[in-house]
Amino acid sequence: MAKNKPEPVQVIKQRRDAALAKLGASIPYVTYMGIQFERRGDELTAILPFRDDLVGNPFLPALHGGATAAFLEVSCVFELTWSTVWEAIETGVMSPDEIAIGQNLTMPKTIDFTVDYLRSGLPRDAYARAVVNRSGRRYASVSVEAWQDNRSRLFAKASGHFIIPDIKTDT
């Protein structure tokens, strides 16, 4: 059997970026908060563009602790989901066109989430990168770091545990 000619890398890249955008757009709260994602290979960076209604202390002003926590939790959930989806795409279990929460994907459920507020969140864009520390059959431990202007000056750190859903491969 003749091997198919590999797809141009640009086509694959576009499809993966589209899959990621689709994943984000399928969750109303992610859209509401305005959280975006950037992908470099399998590495994700979550972005929280600053908005006036994310403020918790209008006198400083500083980001609301709840908004920061929500941003970090979304980053963790996405990292976890994306790492599973990524593997499913790589191994051909799932096609990138199938990706939308509620169809073939179920969200991981948060068991607990702990946020360390290291300094106050400034009224500007925030970035976060999450790492899956361990992913077992049922539970995963994920931690995340968030910064604003300076990558080495974190303004918040968080970690949490999540129940991993099964990927449904049948339709």
């Binding site: 969750i27 509401y32 609301h64 602790g65 926590a69 929500a70 939790e73 979304v74 509620g102 989430f113």
Partner: peptide
């Protein structure tokens, strides 16, 4: 509020919104 849904399959609110409420209330 449908805007706070974290799991469109079930309509359950995102944990982040609950966190924000708890944080505000603790404050």
């Amino acid at each position: 509020n449908p805007d706070y849904i974290g799991d469109p399959a079930t309509g359950v609110i995102h944990g982040g919104a609950v966190f924000a409420l708890l944080d505000s209330c603790c404050g």
